[in-house]
């Protein structure tokens, strides 16, 4: 079936089988292999992308459900230069093997946006903010993204260094 997607501000008109997931469409059909396939059933978060600015698991969506949507993958986070979050992941050792990193970066980008819009989390002290980027807040808000190298201290430090400036 015909599916029109905007990925990283570029339009793609794809002819895909209805079974193709958004993740497979991005990786196999568009050729953007930054988004990773980890568990392929929504538990690890390696495939996290932004759809209309909100984070989702690309493996748990069919491409055809996103006709007309605007998608941002890790490739779209930088504009020639690394985004502040990407630079912070390098500075703070936010990864070891790197496989979960594209998902962590997209998820953290979406999360900082949620905070800027005033979304509380389950562990927030108040519903009205401001939200301190404590370990508890970051663990809760990033709970969908696993890192089997367990680089959480570096990931949290990187997110905090960018979030606190924002």
């Amino acid at each position: 079936m015909q599916i029109d997607l905007t990925i990283n501000q570029k339009s793609y008109s794809l002819e895909l089988d209805s079974r193709v997931t958004l993740l497979d469409a991005i990786r196999e059909h568009v050729g953007l292999t930054g988004s990773k396939k980890g568990c392929d059933h929504g538990q690890c978060g390696a495939c996290t992308v932004l759809v209309n600015g909100r984070r989702i698991n690309a493996c748990l969506s069919l491409a055809a459900m996103h006709d007309g949507d605007e998608i941002t993958t890790v490739e779209g986070l930088s504009d020639g230069e690394l985004s502040p979050l990407q630079a912070a992941f390098i500075k703070e050792d936010g990864f070891q093997c790197g496989y979960c990193t594209p998902g962590q970066l997209c998820s953290a980008t979406g999360m900082l946006q949620e905070i800027s819009e005033g979304w509380p989390s389950h562990v927030s002290d108040s519903l009205d903010g401001p939200y301190e980027l404590s370990e508890a807040e970051l663990s809760e808000r990033m709970s969908g993204n696993l890192c089997r190298c367990s680089c959480y201290p570096g990931i949290n430090a990187a997110i905090r260094s960018v979030g606190e400036k924002a």
């Binding site: 929504g42 978060g45 989702i56 389950h122």
Partner: peptide, 23 residues
């Protein structure tokens, strides 16, 4: 819902993880 029925909003805010809750 958190202004109207906070207990339900709290329940919804703990389903799965943030990416799952988007969809």
């Amino acid at each position: 819902a958190y202004d109207i029925f906070p207990g339900l909003a709290s329940l919804a805010g703990r389903i799965g993880d943030p990416a799952v809750r988007t969809r």
